[in-house]
Amino acid sequence: MFTFTIRRLILTVPTLLFISLVIFLIVKLSPSDPTGNLPLTIPSEVREQIREALGVNKPLLVQYLLWLKQFFWLEPLIYLENLTGWDLGTEGKVRLISYQTRSPVMDLIMQRMPQTLTVVGTAYLVGILIALPIGIISAYKQYSVFDQAGTFISMIGFSVPPFFSGVLVIVLFSVIIPSDSFFWLPSIYDTTHEVVDWESFKYQFRQMIMPVMVLALQITAQISRFTRASMLDNLNQDYVRTARAKGMSESVTVMKHVLRNSMIPVVTVIALGIPSIFGGAIITEQVFKVNGLGQLLIIAIQGGDVPTVQTLTFIFAILIVLFNLIADILYGLLDPRIRYD
């Protein structure tokens, strides 16, 4: 198991380097000019000095290595300093600075992270909690009315994109239902809202319902289908017949023997899905005006803010690689047949 983990860990290094290079080249080789948004009255020699200060005149390789050094060495050091209060000599070093706000990109990301994590994290949990029972029951009662309904709901979850389901629930619960009604829900997610007592908790709960449910529908669709397929694979196996023949109760057979074995691929799919949810949350965040990471990316793209765009996209990539790794290791841990070492 140990060598398996080590081997997978080593493989991630070239993957990350390749992805960072792709992101860097796409942003750098594009025909857009970082000084393009500045006023036209700036003389060309001053413009040249600005470009010099931004470091965009250096050879591409130097720029790439500098970016990597900032991202993988300097920023973790600064994070460590803030955490522990040590002095690691990062004073005066050039950090990744956003073109738009002139503040370090990492600080911006740290400000936005909690909002995204609350909404996306809750949605993922809710989605899984809904999906698992649906998947199990649909497989156990294959082709029943419940199964057909489950299939239809997951087809809807696959087909209705979040920018329509989100807008649709806003129309239903925020526009058509009058605002003094019990069922009215706020359409804008207020991130400055603080939970201090029961009333404010209730408001927080209400404003989270719509974004969380819209995201959860997508997650439920995928995971319930997968659970169903995996359960069906296992229900026809010989060991199930053996368990029944030994006189085990139906609930023990299904919940202990079948479920445990079917969860192996489902757990890895759950791990693999987490990064794609961050990507999908870009749209949901835009619909419900959550000022999370996705919204930061959209603003940065519209403002031509190269360092922020680069860093954010790369962080999304790291998440994908990281959760791929976690899924692989989990798979090896849960299923001994996978660890061929």
Binding site: I19, I26, P275, G279, L297, F316, A317, I320, N324
Partner: peptide
Amino acid sequence: ALPLLPLLLVI
């Protein structure tokens, strides 16, 4: 392993 939606937006 590429983050597709962010990358599409950037492109």
